[in-house]
């Protein structure tokens, strides 16, 4: 990256990490004193977070087929920085893509609790949103929001990959507006 004249902390080509932080502090010192550190750093975190959402790579039911298609060649969700990870320790987004039964409910909660903060949940499809056609069945959780807090609901049975991408982009809007 070429340094810009007059902006000292951007001249980082030759700086190591331990030199970058004092340089950045010096450059931002007045702003931090004026607005407070949290207020200044928050937009940077939100920008980084919403452009590198790592969803948990798991499938519960037929919505997982659309989930897989969304990451395939045609829709290519990775162009938004969304990369499915196979362990909840590396994830900040849980996409509940299918019917949640009471049998699997505590495993879902375990996975959710293993994800580091901050974390978000997308309920994908009618089953995860409200039980779907199995709402009165003896074994189905009527909506995953009974178990974990949900940020975005996507309707459809199943939703097409475009709908999933739209849901993720709406979540990115939510993260952009996040204050704390």
């Amino acid at each position: 990256m070429a340094g810009q004249p007059g902006v000292p902390f951007l001249e980082i080509e030759a700086l190591r990490t331990r030199e970058f932080i004092p340089a950045a502090k010096e450059a931002l010192g007045d702003l931090i004193a004026e607005k407070g550190q949290a207020k200044l750093i928050r937009p940077v975190f939100n920008w980084a977070g919403r452009n590198s959402l790592f969803p948990l790579h798991w499938g519960l039911a037929c919505c997982a087929i659309e989930f897989a298609a969304a990451f395939g060649a045609r829709w290519d969700a990775e162009r938004f920085g969304i990369v499915p990870r196979s362990t909840p320790r590396q994830c900040d987004l849980m996409i509940v893509n299918g019917t949640v039964t009471w049998k699997v409910a505590h495993k879902l909660i375990t996975l959710y609790e293993q994800m580091p903060e901050p974390k978000w949940v997308i309920a994908m499809g009618n089953c995860a949103t409200g039980g779907g056609p199995f709402r009165t069945a003896y074994s189905v959780v009527p909506g995953v929001d009974k178990l974990v807090p949900v940020d975005v609901y996507i309707a459809g049975c199943p939703p097409r990959p475009e709908a999933l991408l739209d849901g993720i982009l709406r979540l990115e809007q939510l993260i952009r507006e996040r204050k704390e």
């Binding site: 009471w102 049998k103 039980g131 709402r135 009165t136 003896y138 074994s139 189905v140 009527p142």
Partner: peptide
């Protein structure tokens, strides 16, 4: 197939569809 502590036997004819709540 059902969770531990599940109190119902869903294939009995006396089992009625429940309200989810």
């Amino acid at each position: 197939l059902t969770p531990d502590g599940y109190a119902f036997h869903p294939l009995l004819r006396s089992f009625k569809l429940h309200e989810p709540e």
